[in-house]
Amino acid sequence: MASARRWLCLILAAAAAAAASGAPAPEDDPGMPMAARHRCWMARVGRTYADAAEKARRFEVFRANAERIDAANRAGDLTYTLGLTPFADLTADEFRARHLMPDADVDEPATARVLFEQEEKAAKQHLPPSRPPAVWGSKDWRDLGAVTPVQDQDKNNCNSCWAFAAVAATEGLIKIETGNVTPLSAQQVLDCTGGDNTCKGGHIHEALRYIATASAGGRLSTDTSYRPYDGEKGTCAAGSGSASSSSVAVVIRGVQKVTPHDKDALRAAVERQPVAADMDSSDPEFRGFKGGRVYRGSAGCGKKRNHAVAVVGYGTASDGTPYWLLKNSWGTDWGENGYMRIAVDADCGVSSRPAYPFV
């Protein structure tokens, strides 16, 4: 009987996936018994538990999250839809510990600011135009082939979003410069970026600087020429003989910071290429975001940073809301197949300190 129920869940999930984009998963149906919703959700995300006691404990967390999500969707006050993402059996504290970086000030410290000022003096010619196009318009680098598939950082609870964001920005630039899509190794960036850039968090600017250094030395690896991503920071193997030589045909010469808190400057940059950005993802609804409409951060969202994403486009929603298009690294079961459209005027700090590589 248990096996039959599992297959039913899988069939229902497949039917939902085959339907029009945004179709809810069967376990998102509030009319389904909670135990059945949990079983269907487990089948969809591949969740298993060590024993019956752990499953029972996780079920209670799942129940509380599902009831909160159902109530929020029923109230109709949100500009988007919540759902049972892969984080549905985690408490808020567990989610924060496993998937977000430690909170940091939204602005960089003075020492980092001095370093960026030095970099900018040598790279002013790489700044995007001072103003973006007069009309808001739209840009989606996915449509132009400059965005690789969404990845999932969640192996061994590794908070490596900073590496994936930097890699996504660089992949976009390489496509623009060469016409070729070249998936890069986030594992290499995790292993080889020094300092406090680890599975406990890191810095997109330092990751981009490492990528530039590795590129200049011919050590920038593709995702197939370095060891597969395993969610653990290991010994840097770039150039050691244990990693194959890269086929990346572009030399990344440096990193350019976008003017902090300047949304027009960010739009001008994204008009030219994908951009890496820090943000605040601690809103309770963020982990349950399933799309449908544009996400709007709370009034307090954006006063700190604890996550990193790639800004791969911008546009205007059907209700007239301007948005940034974000590529996340939480897999395709979160958000709109791994992406989020977030309101420009409530963007949780996306525009606070973005950066991009240049050639």
Rank of each mutant, 00 (worst) to 15 (best):
G288V: 00
A17H: 12
C236N: 11
R353C: 13
A56T: 05
R47M: 06
S242T: 13
V294Y: 12
V312E: 10
S282L: 02
W41M: 03
G288H: 12
W330T: 03
V344R: 12
S246D: 11
D347S: 01
A104H: 13
A238H: 11
E108A: 12
N306L: 03
D347E: 04
A216G: 15
R98K: 14
L266H: 11
K55H: 05
L8I: 14
A122K: 15
G241M: 04
N157V: 08
V258N: 04
P357T: 12
M101C: 04
D105E: 02
A169Q: 02
H307K: 01
C192V: 14
R253C: 00
M279E: 00
V309Y: 08
V275S: 04
I204Y: 02
A207V: 03
W330Q: 05
L10K: 08
P274R: 03
K327D: 01
A134H: 02
C158R: 09
H261E: 07
R293V: 00
A123H: 09
A14M: 12
P128S: 10
A43Y: 01
C348D: 08
P274F: 01
D152W: 10
P260D: 07
A207E: 02
R287K: 14
A317H: 08
A88W: 02
A268P: 01
D283M: 00
G335S: 10
A343I: 05
A299M: 05
S3L: 09
M340C: 07
G234C: 00
A20I: 06
A146R: 09
P183A: 09
T170W: 04
A146N: 04
A97L: 13
L184P: 15
